[in-house]
Each structure stands twice: as C-alpha cells, then as structure tokens.
Amino acid sequence: MNQPIYGVMAEFDNPSALVSAARAAREKGYRKLDAYSPFPIEELGDALHLHKNKLPLLVLIGGIVGGTIGYALQYFVAVMYYPINVGGRPLHSWPAFIIITFEMTILFAALTAVFGMLGLCGLPMPYHPTFNVPRFALASRNRFFLCIESDDPLFDHRKTSEFLETLGPREVSEVAH
C-alpha cells in the first residue's frame, strides 16, 4: 500500500466547499485526511471529528504542579531554610503565600498550554510534504485545501483523485514526499 507520494490534495475557494468536501470524504470512508484553512473553522472540526484533545488535562496538571511548587518553595524557605521571627508570628503564614502560589499556578499552566499546544501539533516542523504543492502557499491567504493521505487504507491514487474531482474543487494535485 505504501505509495511514493504523501497524498492527493484538492483546492477549494470557499470554506463551505471545504467543509462539505471533508464531510463527503469522511462518509466515503477515508480516515487519514486533513484539511487546511487560513482561519479556524469550527464546522471542520465536526466534519473531521477533531473535538477532543488532551490539552485541557495537561494544563490542569501544569497548574497544579506550578501551584504546589510555588507553595512548597515558600514553605521550605520561610519555615525550614531561612526562618525569620517577626514578633513571634507564625512562620507558616499561609495567607501571605497565596499570591505567589497563584502566580506560579498561572505561570506553569500557561507554559503548559503553549508548549503542550506545540507538542500536540508536532511543531516546530520546518518541513512538511504539503509545502511541496506550489499553490499551498495560498492556504495562509484565501484558499482551502483537503488532503487525503496515501497511508489511508482506501487510498488509491487514481480513484481518490477522481473522487476529489467530483467535489467541485478548483484543482486537484498530488503531494510529493
């Protein structure tokens, strides 16, 4: 099944055509496909069943870790490592520690959100086969692309191209590796 190309790509000139094409390809049974658009399209997520991702869970963990580190650091410094007796007040003065705990929670959660997003997307990725299609430069301007990848079990270079042609694209091109 391993073909020498990455996949076949159809170009559309409006988002509605892309969404209905993506839906049609899913209905046809294709699973290894991706759509490319110059802005986020929520309906595309529906069409390609992309709504769940692990990022919120990662961010929650990041926030909890950050908050714990923040509080533990202050507790360690103020109670164990460098205790300062201020008029006999308790060393473990937790209300004063809340602010830095909060800031560290936000900091770690935000760092997790950004690096988690990059990780889940597999970025940075300087090279990708789709960039071999000259017209793909318009994917960041005003064109919408649907790519069916060659490792899809139903993929057949000729048949898949013909199928994409039926969806009313501007152009169908093959994506070299």
Binding site: D34, P40, L123
Partner: peptide, 20 residues
C-alpha cells in the same frame, strides 16, 4: 514554526487560545 493551517492544529490551537 512550520504552521500550515491544518484543521487538526487549529482545533488544538483554539483550545490553547481559550485556555490562555
């Protein structure tokens, strides 16, 4: 960073934006 407007990326990206 090799952003290519993939729908899979946009889905995660939107989540990340809202979380941030």
């Amino acid at each position: 960073m090799g952003w290519r407007g993939s729908a899979k990326h946009w889905a995660v990206y939107e989540t990340a934006s809202l979380l941030l």
